[in-house]
Each structure stands twice: as structure tokens, then as C-alpha cells.
Simulated assay, not measured.
Amino acid sequence: MTNSLLKGVRVLDLTRLLPGPHATQLLAQMGAEVIKIEDPDGGDYARSLSPALFEQVNRGKASVTLDLRVAEDLAAFKVLVADADVVIESFRPGVMERLGCGYDTLKAINPRLVYAALTGYGQTGPLADAAGHDLNYLALAGVLDQNGTAGGAPAISNVQIADLAGGALTCAVGVLAAVIGARASGQGAFVDAAMLDGSLALQPVAMATLNGLGVTQPRGADMLTGALPNYRVYKCRDGRYLAVGALEPKFFGRLLARVAPPGFGGGRRGASTGGGGSSRQATAGRLGGWRARMRDALADPRRARIATRPLHWGLAALFRTRPRDAWVALLADADACTTPVLTLDEALAQAHVRARGLVEDGAVGCPLRFDGGARAALGAPPALGADNAHWLGRR
């Protein structure tokens, strides 16, 4: 059983591997009927390359095998198109046209059809036909250059930012917008979703720096990549890490009040708890030495790093004095935007994730909640061609 919001929306999914299947599974989680169109000779490459990955992004779908190079199968596909709401594919530009089922051909069959092409570089431009993967799109979008520590090489994330955030999620939003438009007007639309484009659109903070200063900042030196001592990852005594996201002064004040000794980090002289001063006064003193400098530096991360260098060094040394979980316990009720850096297995086991019901049968369920309580789970991923009899009248 799935959520019923998209009940009645039928999606023909010709995508393979990760980005497209992730997008269509999200639609399935919200109630869409997704029919996976696969080549009879092995189907989606992920079935053989990574069966575990295939299971993660193809739950709740049907599987139909068609070889679109064969006239009989192409005709069968067009019969399915006549009653579909969405076709989504991830081939290079021109492949569907060469197979005889490009957008112009399919919309003549079904004028209200939404046709989504999810590719690396889009349908136009000098790179439209180029091959690529997540790493390439992030490299060309300027994202990869910003990932990593100061002075180090660009860091490769195990989260596919371009594939999933820039590609799959952006494409799903485009599909939903076009479906709403088709239901209102009776006319479908072509959705050109490119992972490079979507990755560029994920960078408003870096764009603000570029527009404000005329130049981007090196790795580890922008406002949210290491310039601020109150927005950093700190290594603890046991080699594990604590994430400090105390961006606003009120949160940073609470952090310092809980962890720092009097006068820590270059606060005003005499700003200690001695002489009967209250904890609030002491905290104000600690913050006073850097707050004015920070106000000026917020507009320029180059000045921010220099202005707050004593706090960078002081906090780095301080957090090395205790294990990560000791800091977590000390800060548990401080409301200071501090969290442990967890491994994936630790994240899946934490109480909040369990309470939210995010994990189902070894996979992450729909990340959206709608009124009605618990999420409805999807069924297992389909065997290759499991639904041929139902949809094609053949095995």
C-alpha cells in the first residue's frame, strides 16, 4: 500500500541505475503507479551491477520487458503511452527519437502526456551528448571544488548530490508541476531536467559570496565551510567528531556558557564569574570580544577567519579534551545546535529516526510526511518482466 496523493497517476519509467529510479520511486511512495520498462536482455543495469542498490530504488514498481528496437514491442509501448500520465527516460538526447518514440511522436498519441528527460547535461548545449556521472556534474557545477578541508584536495561524497538532489528530486518536482498543468489544460509538457543544472541551483550561499566579493572562496574558507568557529566540525579526544552549527549568537552563547572556561576565546577582560557575576554576565563577556568583529566579518569570510582565529584554535583544543559522546552528554539540553557526527548505521539506530518511522525493511521510506500518520510501505522490487502478463497479455 502506498500514500494515495498521486493515485491515478501512471508513470512509464525507462530509466536505469540511480537518478531516474530514485525519482520514480519517490512518485510511487506518494501513490503513483510506476511501470518499469526494461530491456528483455538483463533489464536495468543495476540488477547485475548492484542488486542491493536496485532494491533500494525500485520498490513498489511493476516490471515490463520491451525491446523498443523491435516493431512489435515498440507498438506495445505506444499502447501503454496512450493511457499514461508520465514517461520518464534517461538516455542521451536523440536516442528515443531514433527508436521512434520521441516526445513529438508520443504526444501525438497522448496530448496530455508529461515527458521527462533526466540527463547529465540537458538536451541542449555543447555537452548535451557527453557521458558523465555524479562526480563530473559536481566538478563542472563548481560544487566539488568547495567540498573538503582547507588546503586539501576536493572531497568525494558518498551521497550523490548531483544524481539525487540536483537530478532526481529536481526532475520529480518538474514532473509534478507538469502533471498539474496537464490536468488543468489537457496539454502535457516536455521536462528537460539536467543534473548539472540542478547542481548549480543548489548553491545560493556560494553564489551570494561570489556576487558579494566577486570571487569564490577556497575550500574550507567560506562562511559555511570553515570560516566561522561556530559552524564547524571538531575532532574529539576519541577521534570522532562533533558538529557545531551554532550559527546565531544566541546558540553560540549557550555553547560557550556550557563548555568554555571564563575568559575563553578572547572575551573582554574581567568578564568572568568571579565577584558574584551571573552566568549570563559571564557569557556576555565571552561573546563581547568577538561579536563586534563578527558583525563586520559576516560580509566577508576572508576577514571572518582572521577575526575569529583565537576561537578556532581554542575550540579545536577544547574539544580534543573529551570523547565525542561526553560532549554530546554535556550539551544534550543546551539547545546550542550541536550534534554527533554519526555513521550511517548509528544514524539508522538513533531514537529520533526510529520514532519518525523512516526505515522500512532495510531501506529508507518516503522522506515526506502527510496527515494520516505512519508512512505506507512499498512492496518489494519487481523481478524482471514480472508484470508482462498483466500489462502486455504475454509472458
Rank of each mutant, 00 (worst) to 15 (best):
I88S: 12
E346T: 08
A141N: 03
G289H: 11
A184V: 11
V114E: 04
L135W: 00
G151S: 09
E33P: 12
G266Q: 05
Q160C: 03
A201I: 05
V191G: 03
R291H: 04
R295F: 12
A336I: 13
N136F: 09
P111R: 10
P40C: 14
L315D: 01
S157K: 02
A271T: 13
A153Q: 13
G285M: 04
V87P: 10
N230P: 05
M96Y: 04
P19T: 13
P21M: 07
A389Q: 11
G373T: 05
R375M: 07
L255D: 03
D325E: 14
K7Q: 14
F190M: 10
I306H: 14
W290A: 14
A201P: 03
L49S: 08
R395P: 07
L138K: 00
R394E: 10
F252L: 02
D361M: 08
I88A: 10
L242F: 02
S185T: 15
G8V: 07
P229M: 13
L318Y: 12
P382E: 07
V359Y: 00
V159L: 06
G226W: 02
R305Q: 12
L228D: 03
K78T: 15
A28T: 03
A389H: 12
V179E: 01
K235Q: 15
R309M: 14
A177S: 13
R354K: 12
D222G: 11
D222Y: 02
T65G: 07
P301F: 10
M294L: 15
L144C: 10
A82M: 08
L358Q: 09
L315Y: 03
R320I: 07
L106T: 01
L344C: 08
R92D: 03
D345F: 00
V179K: 02
E38T: 08
L176F: 11
E38Q: 02
N110H: 07
D300L: 03
A162V: 03
R258K: 08
N388S: 04
G357N: 07
R183C: 03
F77P: 06
G166Y: 01
D325M: 09
R183L: 06
T105S: 10
L228N: 14
L378K: 09
G253N: 08
L247K: 05
G314S: 06
A189I: 04
A178F: 01
F91N: 15
H312K: 14
V81T: 08
Q187A: 15
A383N: 05
M30N: 15
S48I: 11
G245Q: 07
L106E: 00
V341E: 09
V215W: 01
R219Y: 13
L378S: 07
P229Y: 14
C366I: 01
G31R: 02
N58H: 03
R219E: 10
L68Y: 04
L68H: 05
A23M: 12
F251H: 09
L26G: 08
G167E: 04
R395F: 11
G20Y: 01
A355P: 03
